[in-house]
Design a protein around this nucleic acid. Structure first.
Length: 818
RNA sequence: ACCCGAGUGGCGGAAUGGCAGACGCAGCGGACUCAAAAUCCGCAGCCGUGAGAACGGCGUGAGGGUUCGACUCCCUCCUCGGGUACCA
C-alpha cells in the first residue's frame, strides 16, 4: 500500500462514507416498505456465523457481490428487501467457547456487535430493522415450533443410530472432529456408539427434491449447484431380487445390474444384518461374532474409507441364486452398508470392482456374464468388466446375446413372473439426523413421561429456553450437559402431570438456517413464525447468493423444510429460493488464505486506508464474481484512480460550462453501448466486466475532451451499486436532494449503439488481412465489393480465383482462394 | 476412483464460433518538478526482417478432429482447484 496525500478538495472517502452512513441510518434509506411494496424483490445473502475473528476478505467479497446486486435491482425500480442476521448456534461457537473458557452466550453478542460494525462500514444496504439471531429465544421458539409441526405430521421420528465416541474424552464427536479414525483433541481411537436420535424423513421427499431441480418455473439455479444436489440425492434405478433360503424366507438385495444375476457367485450381508444370526453355522459363530464386534467398534468415518483392504467372514450359510438355481455362500463384510439398499448384496465379482477384489482375497469363483464387442465368453477376467452400456450377455442361459440395457429389463420381467424380482428406485440420500448431544443449540421440545411416553411440548409453552448453565462442556455420560441441570431436566408431564424428563439433545444448526429466510420479513410478529401475508408478498426469495460449500446440505434442508411447510399448508410455495448463484473464493497472491500460511486478509485495515467504496470496487473488479479471484495489494490503486477521475469529472460539472459542449457521435455511441453492456453484465453478475465497461466510457470521454451533465449523471448511477457512498456524494454535488438510489437506472437507445460507418474485417483463407470501412446499413454486395477492391486484400488474394465468399453481416468477410 | 470447475502476456483477467490479450496492476519512455510523489501524454504478447513508419511468421496446458474460420465445439491426455467417497 502506498501513501497518497489528497489535495484539499479531492475525494476523501472517510468523510464521504461517514456522512452517508449517518444519513442512510437517519433517513432509513435501506429499509423496504414490507407491507406496501409494489415490486417486492427479496435479495438474500447467506447469513454468517459470527466468528471471533470477524469477517475476512472472502466474506466481504461475497457480501459486496450480493449487495451490489440488490442495489442494482433497487435502481431498476424494485422494492428491495435485503436483510441480514446471524447463524450463531452450533459446534463452532461451542468449541471456541470451550477453548477460550468463556460462555458462548457472552461471546456471541460481542461477535455480533463486531460483525454489525463491519457490515455497516462496508456500506451494505441491509434492513437492520429486521436483523435476527438464531440464538434469540424469539427466533428459536419458532425453530422448535417447526420441529413440532414435523413431529405432528409424522415427519420426525426417533431411532438408534451410531455416533462417534471418544473413550478417553468420553464424549460424542462430530464427523469433522474425527481425524484418521482418532479423536481430534486427544488422539485416542474413536469408536461408534448407538444412541437414540431424532431424524427427519427427508428420504420421503427424495423424488420431489430431485424433480424440482429441473423445473425452471420453480427454480433457476447455477448448474454446478443443481448437479451437486442431484449427485447427493443419488437416484439409482434397479431391482430388488430375492435369494431364497433353505427353510423359507429369502435374502433380499438391491442391484442396479440385474443383468448380471447369472454371475452372482456369492452374497455379502452387512455385519449388522438381522439374518446373520439365522444363517451362521455353529462352527462359524465365533468368527462371525468377532467380526461383528470389531465392525461395530469402528468409528463412522473409517468404516467408509473406500481404498482399505477388503475384510469379511463366511457365515457357513447358503442362499439360492434365483436365476441359476445354484446355492451361493453367504458372507458378511463391512463394505456392505446397512443404511443403503437392503443391507445385503448379490456379489458379481466378474462385473463389480469391490466384489472382484473380495473374491480374489477369499478365493471365491469369478464368472463372466457380460462380454464386450470383440471378446468371447471364455476370456478370463483380469479385472472386473464394469461397462454397463456396451456389451452383451454370455453364460446367462436364454439371455445370451442380449445387449446389457435390454437384458436388465428382460431379466427383471422374467424373475418378476416367478416372484423373485421387483423393479425399484433407490436413493443415496439418508434421513436427516437432527439430534446433537451438545449444549449450544435450541433444545428439542419433547418431554419423556413414564406413563405417557414421548410427549411434545405444547406450542403455548414454547420456547423451551436453553438454561444458562455454567458448565456447558460435554461430559462422560454421553448425553447433553443439559441433563445435569436438574430443575430444567425434571418437569411435570404436560399430558398427565406426572414425573417426566426433558429431551436433552439440541437440534442441528442446519435446522436454524433451514427457515431463517421466512422469519426476516416477519420479525415484528411475536405471535407467529411468519406472517401469511408478508410471506406471500416476499417469498420465495427472489435472489439468493452464497457459497458453494452449502450447495448440498443447507440448500437441500431448506428445500425440504419448505416442501413440508407447503404440504402442511403453511406456505404457498415448494421451492424457497427462486434464483440461486454461488460466489467464488478469494485467494491471496495465488494461494488459499489460511491462518497457518499467515495470508488471511483483514478487510478493516484496507477500508481504513482506501475507503469502503474503493475496496468494494476492487473486490468486484478483481475477477468474475462466480469464480472468485486473486487479492493483490497492488491492484487496489486502479479502482481508486478510477473514482478520482470520476470525482474530477463531477467537479468539472459543478463549476464549468464545458459540460454543455456537444458530444461527438463516437462518444454518444460509446455511452449507449456502455449502458447496454453494463446492464447486461450486472444481470449476469459479471461485475468485473461491468466495471471495465464503465472505465472504458470514462476513458473515451476524457480522450474526446467533451462531455455533458446527463452523461455524468448516468455514470454516477451506474457506479452506485459498487460505490454507494461515493455515488451519493457525487449525486448531491450534481444538484440532487434525494438519494441516488431513488434515481432510475439508465436506459439506452439501440439505434445509438451503432456507428454510422462500421469497420468490416477482411480475412483471406481465415486469416485477418485487412479492414474496410462501410456505411452502417451496407448490404452484402457493397461490402464484398469494398473488400475485393481493398489494396491490402489484393496483395493476399494475388489474382487467384476466389472460390468462396463468407459474409457475416456487420462484422467480417472471409475470402477463400485456391 | 468418481463428479464439477478451471488452465490465455510479467500479473489479475477480457473475448463462449468471426480482429486474441478489452479493462486494470506492474513495467518502459516523455511532460510537469530543483527533485521525488501525485498527475498528464505515449509505448507495450513472442520471434524474425528493417535505420524507419512498416512487413512477415508464431501464439490461448499437450496432441488430434470438425469448420471458410476454433481460446470458444468434439475426442484423447496432462496440470491445478473444489466436492463426494466401498451407494451395490
Amino acid at each position: 500500500m502506498t501513501d497518497r496525500h489528497p489535495a484539499p478538495d479531492s475525494y476523501d472517502p472517510q468523510a464521504v462514507e461517514a456522512k452517508w452512513q449517518a444519513r442512510w441510518a437517519e433517513r432509513r434509506t435501506n429499509e423496504a416498505d414490507l407491507a406496501g411494496a409494489d415490486r417486492p424483490f427479496y435479495n438474500l445473502m447467506m447469513f454468517p456465523y459470527p466468528s471471533a475473528e470477524g469477517l475476512h476478505v472472502g466474506n466481504m467479497f461475497a457480501f459486496t457481490g450480493s449487495d451490489t446486486y440488490g442495489r442494482f435491482k433497487r435502481l431498476q425500480g424494485h422494492d428491495v428487501f435485503e436483510p441480514i442476521g446471524f447463524d450463531a448456534f452450533g459446534i463452532h461457537s461451542e468449541n471456541y467457547a470451550i477453548k477460550v473458557g468463556v460462555h458462548p452466550a457472552e461471546l456471541i453478542p460481542q461477535n455480533i456487535a463486531n460483525f454489525t460494525r463491519q457490515l455497516t462500514r462496508i456500506g451494505g444496504m441491509f434492513a437492520w430493522d429486521h436483523v435476527l439471531s438464531t440464538t434469540d429465544p424469539a427466533y428459536y421458539k419458532w425453530t422448535q415450533w417447526i420441529f413440532l409441526q414435523l413431529l405432528k405430521a409424522g415427519k420426525a421420528y426417533k431411532k438408534k443410530a451410531a455416533v462417534n465416541w471418544c473413550p478417553s474424552c468420553k464424549t460424542v464427536l462430530a464427523n469433522e472432529q474425527v481425524v484418521d479414525g482418532h479423536c481430534e483433541r486427544c488422539g485416542t481411537a474413536v469408536e461408534q456408539r448407538l444412541l437414540e436420535q431424532w431424524f427427519f424423513r427427508i428420504t420421503e421427499y427424495a423424488g420431489r427434491l430431485l424433480e424440482n431441480l429441473d423445473d425452471r418455473s420453480k427454480m433457476d439455479w447455477s448448474d454446478t449447484t443443481t448437479t451437486a444436489q442431484r449427485n447427493w440425492i443419488g437416484r439409482s434405478e434397479g431391482a430388488e431380487l430375492d435369494f431364497a433360503l433353505e427353510g423359507g424366507g429369502a435374502i433380499r438385495v438391491f442391484t442396479t445390474r440385474p443383468d448380471t444375476v447369472f454371475g452372482a457367485t456369492f452374497m455379502v450381508l452387512a455385519p449388522e444384518h438381522p439374518l446373520v444370526d439365522r444363517l451362521t453355522a455353529p462352527d462359524r459363530r465365533a468368527a462371525v461374532e468377532a467380526y461383528r464386534t470389531a465392525a461395530a467398534k469402528q468409528d463412522l468415518v473409517s468404516r467408509k474409507v473406500a481404498d482399505k483392504e477388503k475384510t469379511g467372514v463366511f457365515t457357513g450359510g447358503h442362499a439360492t441364486n434365483p436365476a441359476t438355481g445354484a446355492p451361493v455362500p453367504v458372507w458378511i463384510a463391512d463394505y456392505v452398508l446397512m443404511e443403503y439398499g437392503t443391507g445385503a448384496i448379490m456379489a458379481v465379482p466378474g462385473h463389480d470392482e469391490r466384489d472382484f477384489e473380495f473374491a480374489g482375497r477369499f478365493g471365491l469363483p469369478v464368472v463372466r456374464v457380460v462380454a464386450g464387442e470383440d471378446e468371447d465368453a471364455g476370456t478370463p477376467l483380469a479385472e472386473a468388466f464394469v461397462d454397463n452400456v456396451a456389451g452383451r450377455l454370455v453364460n446367462s442361459g436364454r439371455f445370451d446375446g442380449l445387449p446389457v440395457t435390454e437384458a436388465k429389463r428382460a431379466i427383471v420381467a422374467w424373475l418378476a413372473e416367478r416372484g423373485t424380482a421387483t423393479p425399484r428406485v433407490q436413493y443415496r440420500l439418508y434421513d436427516w439426523t437432527i439430534s446433537r448431544q451438545r449444549y449450544w443449540g435450541p433444545p428439542i421440545p419433547v418431554i419423556y413421561c413414564d406413563a405417557c411416553g414421548t410427549v411434545p411440548v405444547p406450542e403455548d409453552q414454547l420456547p423451551v429456553l436453553l438454561p444458562p448453565i455454567e458448565d456447558f462442556r460435554p461430559d462422560d455420560t454421553g448425553v447433553s450437559p443439559l441433563a445435569r441441570h436438574g430443575e430444567w431436566y425434571y418437569v411435570p408431564c404436560p399430558a398427565c402431570g406426572g414425573p417426566a424428563r426433558r429431551e436433552t439433545d439440541v437440534s442441528d444448526t442446519f435446522l436454524d438456517s433451514a427457515w431463517y429466510y421466512l422469519r426476516y420479513p416477519s420479525t415484528e410478529f411475536a405471535d407467529r413464525p411468519f406472517d401469511r401475508e408478508r410471506t406471500a408478498k416476499w417469498c420465495p426469495v427472489t435472489m439468493y447468493i452464497g457459497g458453494n460449500e452449502h450447495a448440498v446440505l443447507h440448500l437441500l434442508y431448506s428445500r425440504f423444510i419448505a416442501m413440508v411447510l407447503h404440504d402442511l399448508g403453511h406456505v404457498g410455495f415448494e421451492e424457497p429460493f427462486r434464483r440461486f448463484r454461488a460466489h467464488g473464493l478469494i485467494v491471496k497472491d495465488g494461494a488459499k488464505m489460511s491462518k497457518s500460511r499467515g495470508n488471511v486478509v483483514i478487510p478493516d485495515e484496507y477500508i481504513a486506508k482506501w475507503g469502503a467504496d474503493t475496496f468494494r470496487l476492487y473486490l468486484m473488479f478483481l475477477g468474475p464474481f462466480q469464480e472468485g479471484g486473486d487479492f493483490r495489494d497492488e491492484g487496489i490503486s486502479g479502482p481508486r484512480r478510477f473514482l478520482d477521475k470520476v470525482w474530477a469529472l463531477v467537479d468539472q460539472c459543478e463549476r464549468t460550462t464545458l459540460m454543455g459542449s456537444e458530444l461527438h457521435k463516437s462518444v454518444v455511441v460509446k455511452w449507449h453501448q456502455t449502458k447496454r453492456k453494463v446492464t447486461e453484465a450486472m444481470e449476469a453478475l459479471s461485475y468485473n466486466t461491468a466495471i471495465a465497461a464503465q472505465m472504458e466510457l470514462l476513458n473515451t470521454v476524457r480522450e474526446s475532451n467533451c462531455c455533458e451533465r446527463h452523461l455524468v449523471k448516468e455514470m454516477v448511477v451506474m457506479l452506485a451499486p459498487f460505490a454507494p457512498h461515493f455515488a451519493e456524494e457525487c449525486w448531491e454535488r450534481l444538484g440532487h436532494e434525494t438519494s441516488v438510489f431513488d434515481a432510475a437506472w439508465p436506459s439506452w437507445d439501440p439505434a445509438l449503439t451503432v456507428e454510422d460507418r462500421i469497420e468490416i474485417v477482411v480475412q483471406v483463407n481465415g486469416k485477418t488481412r485487412s479492414k474496410v470501412e462501410v456505411a452502417r446499413g451496407a448490404g452484402e454486395e457493397a461490402v464484398l465489393e469494398a473488400a475485393l477492391a481493398d489494396e491490402t486484400t489484393l496483395r493476399f488474394t494475388g489474382g487467384r480465383e476466389i472460390r468462396k465468399r463468407i459474409y457475416v453481416p456487420g462484422r467480417l468477410v472471409n475470402l477463400v482462394v485456391g
